[in-house]
Design a protein around this nucleic acid. Structure first.
Length: 616
DNA sequence: GCGATCAGAT
DNA sequence: CACATCTGATCGC
């Protein structure tokens, strides 16, 4: 949760993600994404009154964020005061003091942040230097090198300060399975379950927030079905999301209204556990939650069984420690300000460890440091450390140089699918009534395993396992269209339940998720009081045609992943491979811009300091 | 009564 | 566990 106060040292007349207290006097506002902890004060009457009196104060955000914001009545008054900006389009903004007329120009560029729909970073360039406010973000290792606006020609821009989403800036969170790996594990679990019968359903017990949409769209696409939610209104201009969602109660959406629970007293689900015809549903609950693996952890599953029918599935909106290290060592800012205190740390501690990632003061060039570093750095920045040794054992000691080991790995994509499968989503998935299917026994070769974050016995190179740079940011911005859809697009009553899915077999025929039982933790009740956040509970219905033998069994993924430092790393069985996040998938996966990356990293390895934005 | 803030729950 | 949000208690205005 963000503790950022709203203002940056370099540009104190603007406020970001905080709208109360001293931020009430800002000349411009910026909202990085639509999570409540970044919207403090945003609906305040004091601010509203100020806006009504002002001619110049505006809120800048992405188009998607604006849409999500205005879809809530509490924030609808912002309609007249918001200025949506395109991604990757530098925009000049005049900051005007309305009493004195004093004016300052600032160029802002929005960079997709990969945190939730509409989430962006803000890159500011002005008289006080270049600063990057990350908002909340998740980049995979190597993503940063693809961001054109952080480069100037072949050089990385000279960044004075980064205001960082430091949620996981702690070696404890060294590695978090990639988005693709998590998605794949969830898909496999869901596929195995719902293919058994039309009354097998999967409940995605999501926290109430934006950010799960790409999970819904991928699941909807894969299983040719829709995810059942409470409200669609926030997505009315985002057909590529909308098409995979429904509120139709006949399809047993995960209703959140407490009064409905009276009708389903024994339900574990907000919407009850019976099909429309009264048949009891067979429900598994899947709770997306962050799983991380420490620096010495070898591997683990992305799915963990927590009860007879309860699972946790790995899912992270935030960059892991090694992803953050990659990000910071690439950019080498003069200053880094944490905006989140990692659990178990103090502000002083995280500030101190982040200093190790700052550029040496002597390397700072023409810009005068504003938020002065109080001590000179004892270390050179690590230019992309890629081994345990560099990241830990010598953390406080000697500098290390970038190695080739950081070449982004691109072979880890989920299947053959492009990361964003929604190009065709304007034609909704085929729909049909809940149909009888061939019931397939669930082949659960669940291998018990230890949750590896507690494992310390094996040396590993976890950061090498982490970075699938191929898990590109979900292109949430692509979801957005400026035209309002015709009503027919919003009327989803005809899309009732699940449908035959030829694609299911692609998943269900293959391997079994590797699960870990943490004992019985079945919930007997579930209350969902969250009236405002419509996506917190969702339900996936099964589809017809559970056929499952063929498909991706044998998983073309089987080609072993390149492991540069540990080529002899123990081979994984195929049955583990399908759900284990560190196993690559399709070799044929798209590998966009790999050549560029290779070139870049080779130049780095060759000591081409120009790529690091250094003067020397 | 409303808003801000904190603790606790989900 | 660890990604966000809600509810309820308490306090000040």
């Amino acid at each position: 949760m963000s503790i950022f106060g709203g203002r940056m040292k370099e540009y104190p007349t603007i406020s970001l993600d905080r709208f109360d207290r001293e931020n009430l006097h800002a000349r411009a506002y910026f909202l990085s994404h639509c999570h409540k902890d970044h919207m403090k004060g945003l609906k305040g009457p004091v601010l509203k009154r100020k806006l009504q009196l002002s001619r110049t104060v505006r809120l800048y955000c992405s188009y998607v964020t604006r849409e999500l914001l205005l879809s809530s009545p509490k924030y609808a008054f912002w309609e007249s005061y918001t200025v949506p900006l395109e991604l990757d389009s530098p925009t000049q903004i005049s900051l005007v003091d309305e009493t004195t007329g004093e004016k300052e120009d600032l160029v802002v560029t929005l960079l997709s942040a990969g945190h939730c729909p509409g989430s962006v970073m803000f890159l500011f360039e002005g008289s006080q230097g270049t600063v990057l406010y990350t908002g909340d973000f998740r980049f995979s290792t190597g993503d940063i090198s693809r961001m054109d606006h952080l480069h100037s020609g072949s050089r990385v821009k000279d960044i004075q300060s980064i205001y960082l989403d430091s949620t996981f800036y702690d070696p404890k969170f060294f590695r978090i399975p990639t988005r693709d790996a998590c998605l794949k594990g969830i898909m496999e679990l869901v596929g195995k379950w719902i293919s058994q019968s039309p009354h097998h359903v999967a409940w995605l017990n999501c926290k109430a927030a934006y950010g799960y949409e790409y999970l819904f769209t991928h699941l909807g696409e894969e299983f040719n079905t829709q995810i059942h939610v409470n409200s669609l209104k926030m997505f009315k201009k985002m057909p590529d999301i909308l098409n995979y969602l429904t509120t139709d109660r006949r399809t047993q959406h995960a209703c959140r209204h407490p009064k409905f629970e009276e009708f389903f007293p024994s339900s574990r689900l907000p919407c009850g556990c019976f099909a429309p015809d009264g048949t009891p549903l067979h429900i598994i609950s899947i709770k997306p939650s962050t799983m991380w693996f420490g620096e010495r952890t070898r591997k683990s599953s992305v799915i963990i069984k927590t009860g007879g029918s309860s699972f946790r599935a790995c899912f992270s909106f935030h960059a892991s420690y090694s992803e953050l290290k990659d990000f910071l060592s690439y950019l080498q800012p003069v200053n880094i300000y944490p905006s989140v205190i990692p659990v178990g740390q103090t502000l002083a501690e995280v500030t101190q460890t982040l200093k190790l990632m700052c550029r040496k003061q002597s390397e700072a060039y023409t810009y005068k440091p504003l938020g002065v570093l109080k001590r000179s750095m004892a270390t050179q920045p690590t230019c992309g450390s890629d081994s345990d040794d560099e990241l830990f054992d010598t953390l406080d000691l000697a500098p290390v140089r970038k190695k080739m080991g950081l070449i982004p790995e691109t072979e880890n994509e989920v299947g053959e699918k492009a990361p964003h499968p929604l190009e065709t989503a304007s034609s909704p998935p085929a729909k049909g009534p809940l149909a009888v299917t061939d019931s397939q026994p669930l082949k659960c070769n669940y291998a018990d395993c230890t949750e590896s974050k507690s494992s310390t016995s094996n040396e590993a190179k976890p950061n090498e396992l982490e970075g699938s740079s191929s898990s590109h940011l979900p292109k949430w911005e692509d979801f957005f269209v400026t035209e309002t859809l015709p009503d027919s697009q919003n009327s989803l009553t005809s899309r009732s339940c699940s449908v035959p899915s030829p694609s299911l077999s692609r998943l269900t025929g293959s391997q079994t998720p590797e699960l870990f039982s943490e004992g019985e933790e079945e919930r007997s009740t579930h209350s969902s009081q969250n009236q405002d956040s419509e996506l917190a509970d969702t339900l996936i219905l099964p589809h017809e045609n559970a056929g499952s033998e063929q498909g991706r069994s044998g998983n073309s993924a089987a080609s072993p992943k390149v492991n540069r430092d540990q080529p002899a790393r123990e081979a994984q069985s195929e049955s583990q491979a399908s759900s284990d996040f560190d196993i690559p998938s399709t070799p044929e996966s798209k590998k966009p811009r790999t050549d560029e990356l290779l070139l870049l990293y080779r130049r780095l390895a060759a000591g081409d300091g120009t790529l690091l934005g250094k003067t020397s």
